[in-house]
Design a protein around this nucleic acid. Structure first.
Lengths: 155, 155
DNA sequence: TGATTCGTGGGGAAAAGTGGGGGAATGTGG
DNA sequence: CCACATTCCCCCACTTTTCCCCACGAATCA
């Protein structure tokens, strides 16, 4: 939670439709930029993939906390190696350009099936980037209903 | 962790598609060169094999730490001997040329099934070099999903 | 309706990856 | 000990990608 430096960070919320240009750039929704703590300093973030078929984006400090946790685990573990090969192996770090955009590297673009139109979805500590049809499938009402049942024990 | 000299080392992250030329050379991704601490001094690294079917590359100092650890273990252990015969027996050390490339020795090339196109995959302390199809098999979404289940106890 | 903010597009400089030629070093066989 | 072939590494040149910068248009707010 929050910036390592003690500065507070707001949660990411909501969904936004943006467009990926011919060079593979997308503008981060303004609301998300604010959530990361002002747009003036150069914001760094890390983008990787999710097994669901979308991209996940973390502010760099949040990501670093994850890495530190992974690094402290027994590295001989084969399952962990597979997991890291996936999460870290797909990770791409970068900064926003002056227009508040990031460059989505071609491998990630292909993985998530992104072409012109993409959806940003805020999920508290991080946000996701989705292909439209996939997002619809992943968040369909029926699917969410069945999932909600299984969660009832948690809250 | 990090450089023995006390200087901090960044993690290796991301995947990059590069090509092995006719002479068996590949350019190390610029991001990885940076992670090893600047490109000015001649960077040395150690390359060996992984049972998964890829090559593993360590900065020389990270590799040395591994060697020290192995050396300190009870050497009568047959499993350890088998392991070392594998890891150390395949190891090849080398330096980057002025263009930031390394030479992959023919036996290693053959072991990992590498021909023209190869993938670099960062996994924190070290990185791997993969044949495309093998990588896909090793990091497929279905495989990762099942692995994630087993790991849930760890974090 | 004027001003500001936000998303979109493109041009151009710089950097990174790729490939090939030639000389030094290495190792092999006579 | 000397020729020979091979491997390896340095240099140069080319192509592609990345990352700056600036400018337009739509939407928002006063």
């Amino acid at each position: 939670m929050g910036k390592s430096g003690g500065m507070w960070m707001a949660f990411f919320r909501g969904r936004y439709l943006h467009s990926l240009d011919a060079k593979g750039r997308v503008a981060i929704p303004q609301r998300f930029r604010e959530a990361m703590g002002g747009g003036e300093e150069s914001l760094r973030l890390v983008m990787t993939v999710d097994p669901e078929g979308c991209l996940v984006v973390y502010p760099e400090d949040v990501w670093r906390d994850l890495e530190r946790k992974w690094e402290s685990l027994p590295q001989m573990n084969d399952e962990l190696k597979t997991y890291l090969r996936f999460m870290v192996g797909w990770a791409s770090d970068g900064a926003l350009d002056r227009q508040g955009r990031i460059l989505v590297p071609p491998p990630l673009r292909e993985y998530a099936g992104l072409d012109h139109e993409v959806w940003f979805v805020g999920v508290l500590q991080n946000f996701e980037i989705w292909n439209g049809e996939r997002l619809e499938k992943a968040t369909g009402r029926d699917r969410v209903r069945s999932v909600t049942q299984k969660l009832s024990g948690l809250f």
